[in-house]
Design a protein around this nucleic acid. Structure first.
Lengths: 215, 215
DNA sequence: GTTATTTAGTGGTCAGACCACACCCATCTC
DNA sequence: GAGATGGGTGTGGTCTGACCACTAAATAAC
């Protein structure tokens, strides 16, 4: 029987003990995403604590994106690759406001980064598929880049970009006009695995100064 | 009077509404770290919800490191840097090998990005100062790059890097041996505003393949 | 066999009760 | 008067028990 209520001694909060216990349980039983964890009431009994404490722990882990909870069913471990931590911190921190330019710049930098990744990872087939979508005018700017970022095969990076994108859109700058030709040029450059040409196409797409080598 | 108990309608959980409300409150009242937020009982009344729901929200934010709570005193906003939560996530989540690789890759990409920024923004004085610090062996790897990222003058970007850095350190990979010469080479390349040389120095520092042009 | 219906289990929420602790301030002691 | 003492009050910490809403599986009805 595991005792958690050492809080009398350890002076640490019960809900933190529960978090710790869950962590141990997960690693001990080798639980993976999708697996179910014991119900709140069962944890209450097993750990000899109040249900409210169990819930505090679970809710905290839920907000962290580590578990997922379905009413009437139970609580499950979640697929946490590149979880929402950045998002949460972002929304809390970025209230700072002053940094519109930072957002734009950062988004541009990130986009150029994953263009470099795509340069080395995308196969021709993917690019052809993307090309056909563009030619059919099926994609807006965000969607176009989302396709690309998926090819970069870096989940964490894609999460960061998604956040930046949302943030960027919330700035309603809207100087971005849809430009199919720039898209096609980009794809072509990627297919040719030509970094210089790729970045050139990107700068043109984003109306960045092409002459200066700012970033 | 703010109503939160739209949960009947919105179907979102009460504690999430409270988190949201707190976020709004913080930005509306322009609260900063160290400031006090209303007591649990007051929030209970103001928002017309149960105290346990308020606590679920507060405990979640506490685990995230966004607030700090002192028994007998109250709850305070905290200086939120990446801190402990990253550690938590680290041990909790990052067993996934691919996720680890993503973290490493992303951190490298970000670092190269701000090297590019520094290339165009740092003045000689800053670089000289950095150089003297390095020569005196005053900086470890993280500190060295933190100095650099400050020169890049992009607050958002530095935030992202700080988080990634903590992530990275929680992986305890530790293949990075201190290398003063690489640091100096990097600084020299930056001072010369030579992008190619800069990135070359960086790759060497990080033991990245220099021949292939992976990223 | 198929379809309703019931039932048990689960998360979601609230209210109330204590406890432990920090702080303020009136009071007491010297 | 200065310092120590000790309640009072407010705050977080925890537990309990009671409902509600929902899901899924067992059961009943056809």
């Amino acid at each position: 029987m595991v005792k958690v209520s050492d809080s009398l001694v350890t002076n640490t909060k019960v809900y933190l003990e529960i978090v710790k216990h869950l962590r141990e349980m997960i690693s001990a039983d080798n639980l993976k995403s999708g697996d179910k964890i014991p119900s709140e009431r069962e944890l209450t009994e097993r750990l000899n604590v109040g249900r409210s404490s169990v819930r505090e722990a679970l809710r905290a882990l839920e907000l962290l994106g580590l578990i997922e909870t379905r009413r009437g069913e139970g609580t499950y471990i979640r697929d946490f690759r590149g979880n929402q931590l950045v998002q949460l911190l972002g929304t809390f921190i970025l209230q700072d406001e002053k940094a519109k330019l930072d957002v734009i710049e950062t988004k541009n930098l990130i986009e150029m980064d994953f263009l470099r990744l795509v340069l080395n990872r995308a196969d021709e087939e993917q690019l052809l598929k993307l090309k056909s979508l563009v030619e059919a005018d099926q994609l807006n700017d965000d969607q176009f880049f989302y396709q690309l970022i998926e090819m970069a095969d870096n989940y964490l990076f894609s999460r960061i970009w998604l956040i930046l994108k949302d943030y960027y859109n919330s700035l309603d700058i809207k100087n971005v006009e849809y430009n199919r030709n720039s898209f096609l040029m980009l794809i072509e450059a990627l297919a040719a695995k030509d970094e210089k040409k790729t970045l050139y196409a990107y700068r043109q797409l984003r109306n960045l100064s092409i002459l200066t080598d700012k970033y």
